[in-house]
Simulated scan of single mutants.
Amino acid sequence: MSENVGGTTTGEQDGELSRGGRRRLRATHDWAKARGQVVGVVAAVARWAGTLAALLLAAHVVLTVGGANPDNAITRFVADWSQPLALDFEDLFTPEDPQLAVLVNFGLAAIFWLILTSIAVRIIKAFG
Rank of each mutant, 00 (worst) to 15 (best):
V104N: 07
S82C: 00
W113F: 01
D30A: 07
T28M: 11
H29I: 06
R35C: 12
S118Y: 07
L108D: 03
E90K: 15
T64H: 05
T28D: 15
H60M: 04
P95N: 06
A68D: 05
A53G: 14
N105E: 06
V62C: 00
I111A: 12
F106Q: 02
L100R: 11
A43Q: 07
F93L: 15
D91Q: 08
A58G: 11
Q37T: 13
V39C: 06
L103M: 04
G40T: 00
V65A: 12
A86L: 11
A58C: 10
L55T: 08
A34L: 03
N69G: 11
L100P: 15
A46Y: 03
D91A: 11
E90Y: 13
L114P: 10
F112D: 01
T28A: 09
W81Y: 13
D71Y: 14
N69H: 04
L52R: 08
L103C: 03
V41C: 08
P98I: 01
L100G: 14
A44D: 11
F89Y: 02
T64K: 11
V42P: 15
A32C: 13
G107P: 05
L87R: 15
D97I: 03
L100A: 14
V62S: 02
L116H: 14
W81Q: 13
E96T: 13
L85W: 07
P95M: 00
D97S: 01
D97N: 12
V102Y: 08
F89H: 03
L100K: 04
L92A: 12
G67S: 11
A34V: 07
N69R: 11
V104T: 08
W113C: 03
P70S: 12
L85H: 05
I111F: 09
A54Y: 14
L55G: 07
E96D: 08
L56Y: 07
G66D: 03
